[in-house]
Each structure stands twice: as structure tokens, then as C-alpha cells.
């Protein structure tokens, strides 16, 4: 089990390899479909994303009526492949060092990881409670006009469990499992 602690750096990221199980502590920014679309359309992000990690997640967040404090009630990853057209641009333009999601991403993102120094972390899909427990606070929220699940939530996490499935050296567990299972299937048809 490896650890990745805030502040994150390109050097730390390049040390990670496919198959590494990692516990992340520090800051994450959620961003999913609408955020990536808006960035792609040319709007500047409302937060500094350099050396930050984007989490593909649409959490269930409740706001305390009196204190106005936000609390994350459930926060697992959403399917990442929908951001495949945009993710590499966010790496290039804003210097993120990590993406957390599920299901893996394609060749554009893999190339982006290699070129700009970024990794893809796979969180366990559906594990919304285990992952929400690792969120210690909600520090800010941006672009709430996109709706709660689509907004950018700034989260502080402790020992957030992920597996590296795409690294900064061209390695992808997803392309390997896809190729192997395709070959295996041929034997059963």
C-alpha cells in the first residue's frame, strides 16, 4: 500500500505504476460531465487546478439548515470514459496531476498522462459510503448552477483508497484486461 499526501507533485506522480494500491490524503476537487464540458467550451476554472486531483464524482450532499455547513452523505466515483474527449485538455491547460474515477479511460487520456505527468486512479465504483467516510470536510463549492451532483466540490480527504490503473509511463490495466478478455472470448464462441 502506497501513500500520496498533499501537496501533490509531478515527481510523486511519476513514481506510481499500474497496479499500485494508494491511499490519498489531502485535497480533491469533484468534476464530472458538465464541468468538463464547460471547461472545454472555454470557461476558466473557478479554482487553481495546478498539481491538483480531479474526482469524477457526483456526491449526495446535504446542507445543514442552521449552520449552512455541507455534509457529504455518499460519494463514489462515476464512469470516467465520458470525459475521454476532454480530460487530456484539462491536463494540458491546467496542470492536474491525477484523475480519480471508475471504469478507466481511453488512448487520448493515456497519452495525456504520459505527456503532462498525470495518473488515473480507479476508486471502487458503488462504494459510496466507504469513500464518503474518507471525506473529512467540504471546504468550498463552485458552479453550483450546474446542479449539486455536477458542481465542483472542494473536499479534504484522509486515506482515500484507490488503485492506479493508468500511469504516466503509458501503462494501462484497462487496455490489457480488454485485450486479454477479447482474446479469451474467442475461445468460447
Amino acid at each position: 500500500m502506497k501513500r500520496l499526501n498533499y501537496p501533490f507533485s509531478k515527481e510523486q506522480i511519476r513514481e506510481l505504476r499500474v497496479g499500485d494500491m494508494v491511499l490519498i490524503s489531502g485535497k480533491l476537487f469533484t468534476g464530472r460531465d458538465a464541468v468538463h464540458k464547460r471547461l472545454h467550451d472555454g470557461t476558466k476554472p473557478p479554482v487553481e487546478l495546478k498539481n491538483q486531483i480531479i474526482y469524477h464524482c457526483g456526491p449526495v450532499v446535504l446542507q445543514d439548515k442552521k449552520t449552512k455547513k455541507y455534509e457529504v452523505k455518499a460519494a463514489g466515483p462515476t464512469t470516467s470514459i465520458r470525459e475521454e474527449p476532454y480530460q487530456w485538455e484539462v491536463m494540458r491547460d491546467y496542470g492536474i496531476v491525477g484523475v480519480i474515477g471508475k471504469g478507466g479511460m481511453g488512448p487520448k487520456t493515456l497519452e495525456g498522462c504520459k505527456q503532462y505527468g498525470c495518473v488515473y486512479f480507479h476508486a471502487i465504483g458503488g462504494a459510496a459510503q466507504v469513500l464518503a467516510e474518507k471525506i473529512k470536510s467540504v471546504d468550498s463549492v463552485h458552479w453550483l448552477d450546474l446542479g449539486s451532483p455536477e458542481a465542483i466540490w472542494e473536499l479534504s480527504v484522509e486515506e482515500f483508497p484507490v488503485v492506479v490503473t493508468m500511469d504516466a509511463h503509458g501503462g494501462s490495466l484497462h487496455s490489457k484486461v480488454d485485450a486479454d478478455s477479447k482474446a479469451a472470448l474467442k475461445n468460447f464462441l
Binding site: G76, T78, A127
Partner: peptide, 19 residues
């Protein structure tokens, strides 16, 4: 993690998955 999540969601009476 899936097993732990099932137990935790039941205990806290909160969504197993955020979606």
C-alpha cells in the same frame, strides 16, 4: 471494499451508491 460498503450503508442508513 464492496463488502465494507454494504455493511456501512446499512449501519448508517445512507445510500449504498451516490447514484
Amino acid at each position: 471494499i464492496i463488502k465494507a460498503n454494504i455493511e456501512l450503508a446499512k449501519k448508517k442508513s445512507q445510500p449504498i451508491c451516490q447514484d
